[in-house]
Simulated assay, not measured.
Amino acid sequence: MLFDKIVRPALYRVSGSDPETVHERTIGSLARLSRVSPALAALGRVYRTDDPVTFLGLRFPNRVGLAAGMDKNGRALHAWPALGFGFVEVGTVTRHPQPGNDKPRLFTLAQTDAVINRMGFNNEGAEALAARLAATGKPPVPLGVSIGKSKVTPLDEAVEDYRFSLRALYPYADYFAINVSSPNTPGLRALQDKSALAELLAELRETSAELAGDAKPTPVLVKVAPDLTDEALAELLEVCLDHGVAGLIATNTTLSREGIAPPEAAVGEQAGGLSGRPLTARSVEVVRFVHDETGGKLPIIGVGGIFDAGAAARMLDAGAGLVQLYTGFALHGPGLVKRVARGLAARPY
C-alpha cells in the first residue's frame, strides 16, 4: 500500500523515528487542512462513503468513526470527515489542563500492528476544547466527547471533575463517552467498580437532565476495559442499565501483552495500554458479552484491533452498531477508513 511503503516511512524519517512527534505533526497538518475548504472537498470525493445509519437517535453518514485519543483537543475536526470518517470522538479531555506522563510515552510495534501508550490524558482542558468548538464550529458529522478524571483530582472528588467537563462541553457534544477504563491515570479503573460507577452515573444523569432542560438529554456512554472479568463486566452492565446509560464503547486498551511478535518483546515490556491487532479477538468477545448479557438493550460502539472490513463486520455481528478506528488508522492511513466503510456498506445489516 502507498501509505505503508512511502508515506509512513517518510513521516518517521522527518520526525526522527519518534511516534509522538509523528502524531503531533500529522495533527498539525490536518488542523491546517481543516481551514482549506477546496482541499477538504477534494479529499471527501476520494475517501467519503455514504452508508447512513441511525444510532443513539443520531444520523451517521457511515458506521466508521475516529476513536478518542487521536485528536484530543479537537484541532483537526473538519479534516476527519473528509478522510471518510462517519463520526469523530475527541478527547479524552479533563477538567484541568495537564501535560500527561513523562516522555517517551508512545511506542509503535510495527510487526505486531500495535501501539503501546501511557500518554496520561495529556490535553488542554475542557474549557479550552469548548472555546475551540465555539470558535471553529462542530464537524459535519456527529461529534463525541470523551471525558476523564484529572490526575491531580483525588479519586473521591472525581464526580465533580466529570460534571465540570460535562457542563463545559454540553452545548457541543452529540454524545459523551465516560472514560473510566484508561490504564494510564492512577486509580481511574477503580471507577468501574459497582458503587463508584453508580455514584458517578447518577450524578452525570442528573446534571445532563438539568442542562438539557425541555430537550432530550445528550446520550452518555461508558467506555470499558477489555481486562474485566465476566463477573465484573456483568456488574458494570447492571449499573449502566439501572442508571439509564445510552450505550457502551468496547473496548479501551489492554494491560495484556499477549500477541506481541517475538522480535518486539522488549518494546512490549514498556508500561501502558496496548492497542491494535492483539486486541481484536478480545474486543469482539467483550462486545458479544455485552450484547448477550443485556439482551441487546445497550447500544455498542466496537473498537479495538480493526484492520480490515472483516474485523469490523465481526464487531457488528457480535452486536455493535458502529465501530471506531485508532491504531489501524495511525499505522495504515486513511485508505483503511475507506476500505472498512465500503466493506460494511456492501453487507446487509
Rank of each mutant, 00 (worst) to 15 (best):
D4C: 08
K5A: 09
I6H: 07
I6T: 12
V7F: 05
V7T: 13
V7D: 00
R8G: 07
Y12N: 00
S15A: 15
D18T: 13
P19Q: 12
E20F: 00
E20Y: 00
E20A: 04
R25D: 02
R25F: 07
A31I: 11
R32Q: 13
A39T: 02
A39I: 01
L40D: 06
L40S: 11
G44V: 14
R45S: 08
D50L: 04
F55T: 04
F55Y: 02
R59E: 14
F60I: 09
A68M: 11
A68Q: 12
M70T: 14
D71M: 04
N73L: 04
G74T: 09
R75M: 10
F85Q: 01
V90S: 03
H96D: 11
P97L: 05
D102T: 13
P104K: 10
A110R: 12
Q111W: 00
T112R: 03
R118K: 07
M119E: 07
N122S: 10
E127Q: 06
A128M: 09
A128Y: 09
A135K: 15
A135R: 15
P139F: 05
P140V: 11
V141D: 11
P142A: 10
G144A: 13
G144I: 08
K149Q: 13
K151E: 15
P154L: 11
V159P: 08
V159N: 11
R163I: 11
L166W: 00
A168R: 05
L169F: 07
F176V: 12
A177Y: 01
S182M: 08
G187W: 04
D193S: 15
S195K: 12
S195M: 04
S195A: 15
A196E: 09
L200Y: 03
L200Q: 09
A202L: 03
L204F: 00
E206W: 00
L211Q: 05
L211P: 03
L211I: 05
K216R: 12
P217F: 00
L221R: 08
L221W: 02
V222M: 13
V222R: 13
V222C: 12
P226D: 11
D227L: 09
A232K: 14
A234C: 06
E235T: 10
E235A: 15
L237G: 15
L237M: 12
V239H: 07
L248Q: 02
I249K: 05
L255C: 09
L255R: 14
S256N: 07
S256D: 11
E258P: 00
E258M: 02
G259V: 06
E264L: 06
G268L: 02
Q270M: 06
A271S: 11
G272E: 01
G272L: 04
R277P: 00
R277M: 03
T280Y: 01
R282N: 02
V284P: 02
V284L: 03
E293N: 09
K297W: 07
L298P: 14
G302Y: 09
G302S: 14
V303K: 03
G305L: 01
I306Y: 15
G310S: 13
R314Y: 03
D317E: 15
A318M: 03
G321P: 04
G321N: 09
L322T: 08
V323E: 04
Q324T: 14
Y326D: 09
G328I: 10
F329T: 12
L331C: 13
A341I: 04
G343R: 10
G343F: 10
L344K: 01
A346M: 08
